[in-house]
Simulated scan of single mutants.
Amino acid sequence: MLAVISSLSMLTLFILKRYVPVWKVPFKNDWLAENCNSTVILDVRDYNESCNNHIQGAIELPVAYLKRYYKEIPKENILLVASDNREKNVSIRFLRKKGFNIVGCTNLKVEAQELLVKSI
């Protein structure tokens, strides 16, 4: 019985960390217009995705490498660029735990879908 309860609690924690949205981080569609000198753009998409849609001046550091290279990120305001909600949630939670200030995030797949719907 104890093994079942601990398995369920571990599964619940896993789901919460990855899929439950992060609070108090605004989703910014017009992030490029608001970019200022005191904000660092951090691109946490896979290299395969970020090389096809490169963002000028962004630090490219995929989610899988955050734990190893987070010390190379400047301690300034961070605007996070992700390709899906899972990447966004995991990255924001990790960076907040390490003391970074996330001022906003954007999901490029959602933006592309919104632009496609508007053009139809």
Rank of each mutant, 00 (worst) to 15 (best):
R68D: 07
S50N: 10
E49H: 11
K28L: 14
Y69L: 02
Y19I: 06
K17Y: 08
I41Y: 04
T12N: 12
Q56W: 13
I5H: 03
D84I: 09
T12S: 15
K88N: 09
N52I: 10
W23P: 03
L79W: 02
W23H: 07
N29Y: 04
N77A: 02
S83E: 04
I5W: 06
L8N: 07
I102D: 01
E72D: 01
L61V: 04
L8S: 08
V22F: 04
G104A: 12
W31T: 02
L16H: 11
E114G: 00
Y70F: 14
L115C: 09
P26H: 06
I5Q: 03
L79D: 02
L95M: 11
L32Y: 09
A58Y: 06
P26I: 04
R93P: 09
S9P: 00
F14E: 09
N107I: 08
L115M: 12
G104V: 07
F94T: 03
K98N: 11
V22H: 02
K24W: 06
L80K: 03
R18C: 05
S50T: 12
L80G: 05
Y65I: 01
N89S: 07
A64M: 11
S7L: 15
V103F: 05
T39E: 11
R68T: 14
Y65R: 05
I92L: 01
I73W: 01
R45Q: 12
A112P: 05
G57D: 09
M1R: 04
H54D: 08
D30A: 09
C51H: 13
L116K: 15
I41N: 01
D30R: 12
G99K: 09
L80V: 11
C51T: 15
S119Y: 12
K109M: 11
I5V: 08
N52T: 14
E114M: 13
E87C: 06
F100V: 06
I78S: 00
L116Q: 14
L115T: 07
R86D: 00
V63P: 05
F94L: 10
V40G: 05
R18N: 13
C105R: 00
K109R: 14
L13P: 01
L42I: 01
K71M: 08
F27G: 05
V117N: 13
Y47M: 10
M1G: 15
S91M: 07
S119K: 15
E60M: 03
P26R: 10
L108Q: 06
F94Q: 03
Y47L: 13
M1N: 08
K28W: 04
R18E: 09
M10S: 14
L95W: 03
